[in-house]
């Protein structure tokens, strides 16, 4: 058993800091105070549950690599994915204040993650008010993305809804230095995507074929490329304003 508390390599936090610093500068003291609180990184296989619905985790989980989903299981066994998380995202920063989690968090791909104790979060947010606002911002970005998904589920056609997710994932990954908006690693299955879009896997397959036929999507293995970025954005009515990719004083 290793006694090491912290991360093996501070560079593992690069995506996390990049996500925040894409929106505002962090001071070196803020970065240091935050960085030293994270525990040693761990790994989980695809399909593993990180936090279960109804649990009261004493820590929040930061994703370092791979993709996770926030999910709700329905009585009939169906699953609704309400969010995909990418490296640099806290998958459950909200559990710091909500205490009890009203959904589960599952690994969609093999993942690496680290955790920070809620007691440590409490101390660091009391010491660094601007850092607190940046963590607040992180949860506000989550809810902005939730709003956009809600609009998609309620109002977009299946085709536009899928197109929108492909536009969004490219930008979110690019914002943390992974891939480019039109070419990125996205190792989710069509079943995962179906659960995120509120559709059947058969319908998603149909929609993917349609996007392919329109030369808007190439999805081979885990690699997504969008050969006509303007075209797919137009189809999705994609406006990146909700991702708040602007650096300003917060």
């Amino acid at each position: 058993m290793m006694t090491a508390q912290g991360l093996s390599d501070p560079a593992l936090l690069q995506t996390f800091f990049q996500r925040l610093e894409r929106r505002d500068e962090l001071g070196p003291d803020e970065r240091r105070a935050m960085a030293e609180l994270f525990r040693h990184e761990r790994r989980l296989e695809a399909g593993a549950e990180i936090v279960g619905e109804g649990e009261r985790p004493g820590q929040s989980t930061l994703l370092l690599s791979g993709i996770t989903a926030r999910a709700k299981l329905m009585g009939d066994g169906e699953r609704q994915i309400t969010a995909f998380n990418v490296p640099g995202d806290f998958v459950d920063l909200h559990s710091f204040l909500l205490k009890e989690l009203d959904h589960s968090v599952v690994a969609i791909t093999p993942i690496e993650f680290t955790q920070i104790a809620h007691a440590d979060l409490e101390r660091v947010t009391e010491r660094f008010p601007h850092l607190s606002r940046m963590l607040w911002l992180a949860t506000l970005l989550d809810s902005a993305i939730n709003r956009e998904w809600l609009v998609g589920l309620g109002r977009r056609s299946a085709l536009a809804r899928a197109a929108h997710i492909f536009c969004e994932m490219g930008l979110r990954l690019n914002a943390v230095g992974l891939g480019s908006p039109d070419n990125y690693e996205f190792a989710v299955t069509q079943t995962d995507l179906a659960d995120a879009m509120g559709l059947s896997a058969v319908h998603v397959n149909r929609v993917i074929q349609d996007l392919r036929a329109r030369n808007l999507l190439v999805w081979q293995g885990s690699r997504v490329s969008l050969p006509n970025l303007d075209g797919i954005r137009e189809l999705a009515e994609f406006d990146d304003r909700y991702l708040n990719l602007m650096k300003e004083r917060r």
Binding site: S157, A158, L159, L199, S200, A201, V202, H203, N205, R206
Partner: peptide, 25 residues
């Protein structure tokens, strides 16, 4: 490509759900 299901009834259930989404669009 197709998809695997335990039996024809399960495949039909998914087809019905899919039809609902397709009709909406």
């Amino acid at each position: 490509e197709g998809l695997d299901f335990p039996d024809l009834d399960a495949a039909i259930a998914v087809a019905r759900k899919t039809l609902g989404g397709l009709v909406q669009d």
